[in-house]
């Protein structure tokens, strides 16, 4: 019989199988926000050369 060890924390639950979908959603959200902001700033920077 395996001895019980009540003092140790219970092991974390295994990650859900849909976790890669969550990662993909996060990547998409980062692209839409951070990348989009950077691109708008880039166009504004380009525009500042002429105005």
């Amino acid at each position: 019989m395996t001895p019980r060890n009540d003092r140790s924390d219970p092991p974390p639950p295994p990650p859900a199988l849909y976790t890669p979908l969550v990662w993909a959603g996060g990547g998409l959200l980062l692209t839409v926000t951070v990348w989009f902001t950077g691109m708008v700033a880039l166009f504004r920077g380009f525009g500042s050369l002429f105005y």
Binding site: L30, T31, V34, W35, T37, G38, M39, A41, L42, R44, G45, F46, G47, S48, L49, F50, Y51
Partner: peptide, 18 residues
């Protein structure tokens, strides 16, 4: 990588005086 367009934006902004 997501924020990388900000580097050329800063350079162009500096050249354009903004």
């Amino acid at each position: 990588f997501f924020a990388s367009p900000l580097i050329p934006a800063a350079l162009l902004g500096a050249l354009g005086g903004d």
